[in-house]
């Protein structure tokens, strides 16, 4: 079942293997029945950890409980998440190239009017909005991940034309990609000296430290998500040139 990959995408959507069908229906039905009984047996009086979090919210340095959980109470999760994102980016980075600059703007002759207007007007607005989301994350819904995702969306918009190109293996890009993980680990281990345990912020500076980590995380997440998108485009250009070489030979 897993050892073939259909090239025709318009084939039948279902494998005609009855055994896997029956097995999956059975397993999914069993899971569904068990969890539904568990959920129905819950009386709804349990509040989870909400009371603990609201009691300790002053200790975290921010007033938005989700940001407090993400970057203070369970900062370890966020640290590992950023590490996972970095590992994925390392796995799919396009070809190694030290010489082209980090950001390049190429003048293209054929201009798509709608696209260039979108790039001129929407992208700066998205950047401002992402900055607001990052700043508002301390006390309102928002934060580093949302801001990074918005900026990555803006970069996807920029990549729609061939005008803008980013080299993800230039030294600047490397520094920016590992920036958040480096800052996070440095602050976390430095706090062992001052506070006695990993990632325990001092009460006076916690808001500032969280904002610093979030800003670095926004930059790194933006670049990481943008590289995930442009890995498909970069490989495409590469394979086209490969094909040309092949036909010439």
């Amino acid at each position: 079942m897993f050892n073939k990959l259909d090239i025709e995408y318009d084939g039948p959507p279902v494998d005609k293997s009855a055994l896997s069908l029956i097995a999956s229906v059975l397993v999914a039905g069993l899971l569904l029945a068990v969890t539904i009984t568990i959920v129905l047996s819950d009386k709804g009086h349990n509040t989870g950890l909400a009371t603990v979090i609201t009691q300790n919210i002053e200790l975290s340095g921010v007033t938005n409980p989700v940001t407090a959980v993400l970057l203070n109470f369970r900062a370890y999760d966020t640290l590992l998440e950023i590490a996972v994102l970095l590992v994925v980016v390392l796995a799919i980075l396009p070809t190694r190239d030290h010489h082209t600059p980090f950001f390049k703007r190429i003048e293209v002759n054929k201009q798509n009017l709608v696209l260039s207007a979108l790039q001129c007007w929407i992208a700066p607005a998205v950047v401002i909005f992402a900055g607001y989301l990052l700043w508002a994350g301390a006390h309102q819904p928002g934060g580093a991940f949302q801001a990074g995702a918005l900026l990555a969306g803006a970069s996807v918009l920029l990549f729609q034309s061939d005008t803008y190109q980013i080299n993800y293996t230039s030294p600047i890009a490397r520094v920016l990609l590992v920036l958040s993980l480096g800052v996070f680990i440095t602050i976390g281990t430095a706090l062992i000296w001052f506070e006695g345990s990993l990632l325990t912020y001092p009460l006076a500076f916690s808001g500032l430290l969280i904002l610093l980590i979030e800003t670095c995380a926004t930059v790194s997440i933006t670049l990481a998500l943008a590289s995930l998108y442009s890995s498909f485009i970069a490989n495409e250009n590469l394979s086209i040139t490969d094909n040309k070489h092949r036909t010439i030979e």
Binding site: N64, V66, T67, L133, P141, G142, G143, F145, Q146, A149, L150, A152, G153, V156, L225, L228, Y229
Partner: peptide
């Protein structure tokens, strides 16, 4: 869950 809604609209649907 407004935090998650923003992230889902940007990442889950967009990216």
């Amino acid at each position: 869950a407004f935090d998650v809604a923003i992230a889902e609209a940007a990442i889950g649907a967009g990216i």
